[in-house]
């Protein structure tokens, strides 16, 4: 059922030339994907896809669209080469699927090797109920460190391309979507719960779905909302753009710092057991610290990218 909708959206995305509609469809696609992930027991992924894929990506694409054009030009001749490449690739994928273990098969290698160790050992070695968090932040914590650096890199790249965004030229009170008398009180009441929820997600990741990534996004979205409703400049007064990239750097350094600390304590890089005499307590502390680093970097990069896009005026 969900997959059927996804297919329809994909076809529509190919055919439509109104890019605004295409981007909105992309948002719906991400949201449906998130629902599909829920269905497949991937709660953390669903949460992230909804926040990052449907939320951040769509907002970014809309701000990108604002600075370019809404309508795609009528396509010229369509060369046959792309269709052939796609056909060959698709055939290779279907070929691959013929020997793939069927969906949900408990004898599939994925469920036989490595995974059982995580499921059995997480409560003993890491001591957090959410196995995804344990694997993410500890067993494969180095991947997540790399991921934090990827976000930092993206923030840096946008900064290099578009600059800090706005700066002094913004009058407080001038906003992107016009004067919204109805929206303002709604936003005003919404923001405190959003920020609170962000904090909850940040620190509750050990137990349920959530963690630094989702929290950073939610926190940033609170500011974005404020910015949209109350005008550029107001949110910038609370968190100046110039500070954001320093904050992003700080987040990476917090994560890396935990690793380097372990290194000087005579353990491997990112070995959290160096943080405490009791290894499980060390894991707890380590996960908490690195998630804070992740949260700070994600928050500041998402917000700074939003500033960079919204601070730019269309030239043509």
């Amino acid at each position: 059922m969900l997959l059927g909708f996804l297919v329809l959206i994909a076809i529509a995305a190919i055919r439509l030339r109104d890019l605004f509609a295409v981007v909105m469809l992309f948002g719906v696609y991400s949201l449906l994907t998130a629902a599909l992930f829920m269905d497949l027991d991937a709660v953390d992924v669903a949460f992230t896809e909804a926040a990052v894929g449907a939320g951040v990506s769509t907002v970014l694409m809309l701000s990108g669209l604002r600075l370019t054009r809404r309508w795609e030009e009528a396509p010229g001749h369509r060369p046959p080469l792309p269709l052939m490449v796609v056909a060959v690739t698709g055939a290779a994928l279907i070929y691959a699927m013929l020997d793939a273990p069927p969906l949900g098969d408990p004898t599939a290698p994925v469920h036989q090797h490595v995974t059982p160790y995580y499921i059995e050992q997480t409560p003993l070695e890491v001591g957090v109920p959410n196995i995804v968090t344990a694997v993410l932040a500890s067993y494969r914590g180095y991947d997540t460190f790399g991921e934090t650096v990827v976000i930092f890199t993206a923030g840096l790249a946008v900064l290099l391309l578009l600059g800090v965004g706005g700066g002094h030229s913004f009058r407080p009170g001038e906003n992107a979507i016009g004067d919204q008398t109805v929206l303002k009180p709604v936003v005003k009441t919404l923001i405190p719960p959003i920020l609170l929820y962000g904090l909850y997600v940040q620190f509750h990741g050990d137990f349920g779905a959530g963690g630094g990534f989702q929290a950073g996004v939610i926190f940033a979205s609170g500011f974005v909302l404020y910015d949209l409703a109350f005008g550029e400049g107001n949110a910038r007064a609370v968190v100046p753009p110039a500070w954001l990239h320093r904050l992003a750097a700080l987040g990476v350094l917090i994560y890396g710092g935990v690793g380097v600390y372990a290194l000087f304590a005579g353990k491997a890089f990112l070995d959290y057991s160096a943080l405490s005499a009791n290894p499980v307590a060390g894991q707890h502390a380590g996960i908490l610290l690195v998630e804070i680093g992740v949260g700070i970097t994600v928050f500041s990069v998402v917000l700074s990218i939003f500033y960079a896009f919204s601070g730019r005026r269309r030239k043509s």
Binding site: L156, R246, L250, V252, G259, A268, F269
Partner: peptide
């Protein structure tokens, strides 16, 4: 420290990057 060389050659430039921004 010498035992950490495999990771040091990666994280040294990696962590200097945010330092440069600061």
């Amino acid at each position: 420290l010498i035992d950490h060389l495999p990771v040091l050659v990666v994280i040294l430039p990696l962590l200097t990057a945010p330092l440069c921004v600061l």
